[in-house]
């Protein structure tokens, strides 16, 4: 390779352009700008919501019929849920959050890498935490809406028992659970940027977390020390809290634990996101073909 050098000369001392001096956008404004970017495309919003609701209703109806045919063994701890359907319906609703944190977020990062928009964003004066949260913001806002639609259909059409439900508690746990899972999602996005293969990793995380968190069956049925070990997982804490809030139980501890998990996970995940961007810049993979 040829060593090349050049010097462009022009009278030095001219004033620098305005961007360096002028006050810029603040971090909250940047996060909102990134969320607004997604809201600006209604096609990301309307049809996916309709399709998702249709898919979700069919999925829930399948479990409604399964719960009519199969009865849990006597003594099975359904964490306060009055029936298996009530148990699994909450699991499927929170599964949406797990999917938003994993497959949807990594899918989005993969698309941004391929289209070159991730490189564009990495070149902007946006702090890493704002970029990470802004990228994850829309999928999580959307999943809260979807969860609300699911719970409404469950309560009004499919017979979910909600006579003792504390809806304030349901909302708080759902929001806190989503925030905690956002940390997991940003961590997966970081893995996707730095290593690639994020789609495979995301599917593994969804299956793994739904298996050990009590989505389809009570964690008390897990072998060995797993029931105790999985007690620290935000996904399990959120599911336990949601079931408690829907059946008039105590949900405040779950909400507090989820907020603490968020306070720990989000900064760690944002740091990992920043590291991933630096690794990708070193390897030249911020844009992948």
């Amino acid at each position: 390779m040829t060593p090349t050098a050049a010097t462009a000369t022009r009278a030095a001392g001219r004033r620098e352009g305005g961007a360096g001096r002028r006050g810029g956008a603040n971090a909250v404004g940047m996060v909102l700008a990134l969320v607004r970017r997604d809201l600006g495309d209604p096609r990301q919003f309307r049809l996916p919501l309709l399709l998702d609701v249709a898919f979700g209703v069919v999925n829930l109806v399948v479990f409604l019929f399964i719960s009519r045919v199969l009865t849990p063994a006597t003594g099975t701890d359904l964490t306060r849920s009055p029936s298996y359907f009530d148990f699994v319906a909450v699991g499927i609703t929170f599964l949406l959050v797990l999917q938003a944190a994993s497959t949807q977020l990594t899918g989005r990062v993969i698309r941004e890498q391929r289209s070159g928009t991730l490189e564009l964003l990495a070149a902007q004066p946006v702090p890493v935490s704002a970029l990470a949260i802004g990228t994850a913001g829309y999928p999580f806002l959307f999943v809260l809406l979807r969860s609300g639609v699911y719970l409404t259909i469950l309560a009004t059409v499919l017979g979910l028992r909600t006579e003792h439900a504390d809806w304030w508690g349901v909302t708080v746990v759902l929001v806190a659970g989503s925030a905690a899972m956002m940390g997991v999602g940003i961590g997966l996005a970081a893995f996707t940027i730095a290593v690639g293969h994020g789609d495979g990793a995301a599917r593994l995380v969804v299956v793994g977390l739904s298996f050990v968190s009590g989505t389809y069956f009570p964690v008390s049925e897990l072998p060995g020390p797993l029931p105790e070990l999985t007690a620290v997982l935000p996904s399990r804490i959120a599911l336990d809290g949601l079931r408690a809030a829907l059946t008039g139980g105590h949900w405040a501890w779950s909400a507090g634990a989820l907020l603490a998990a968020t306070a720990l996970l989000l900064p760690v995940a944002s740091w990992a996101f920043g590291r991933a961007l630096r690794i990708a810049a070193r390897r030249g993979t911020l844009k992948r073909d």
């Binding site: 090349t4 010097t7 462009a8 022009r10 001392g13």
Partner: peptide, 13 residues
């Protein structure tokens, strides 16, 4: 791709 590259670009150039 390139090596030993030196470059000075003054403001406005």
């Amino acid at each position: 791709i390139f090596t030993d590259l030196d470059l000075d670009v003054a403001a406005g150039a």
